[in-house]
Amino acid sequence: MARGAGAQQRTTINLALDSAIFGAFLAATAPRLTGIAIHEWLGIAFGVAIMTHLLLHWQWIIEVARRFFGKVTWTARVNYVLNTLLFIAMTIIIATGLMISEAALPLLGMQLPHDHIWSQVHRLASDAAVLLIGFHVALHWRWIVHSTRRLLRISTRRPASITEPVTVTSRAVREVP
């Protein structure tokens, strides 16, 4: 019972954090919507969110890395490569974003000379990140739908308190890299 509730809680945390990251990503890719200052601070906060995301899925990262050339499914392998590319793209976006910062770094008293190449790499990496995020979401689509449905069903069935054991398939938890 406690184990089921723990898994349920973990799924909720993962889903909430992933949704927040996705929303932040969409907002960050539209500096015209947020304005440059929010765009930059959002980008910096995004780095922290990604780190939390990676820490939450640390076990999966280690397991697949260990068995990458051994006994592991093709889906996990593709997922791993995709996630690595996404990490590289996000790091490039944040690093180049800091190099061309107009609001965040000057506020901290740092002024870097403008270099056009950083802007170009920043845009290229962001274009690539949109595509990679698309594939990332696509590969986890079943988990997203499954978890959302399960959470909504549970919350509508038990509005006041949870008295019955909550069961979540271990597969759903495992599918969350």
């Binding site: 890719t29 947020t34 995020i133």
Partner: peptide, 19 residues
């Protein structure tokens, strides 16, 4: 882009459509 504007929603829509 130094000031926020609702016109930026088009960018969000574009990226969302691609994804």
């Amino acid at each position: 882009e130094h000031q926020a504007s609702l016109a930026g929603l088009v960018e969000v829509g574009k990226n969302l459509a691609i994804i």
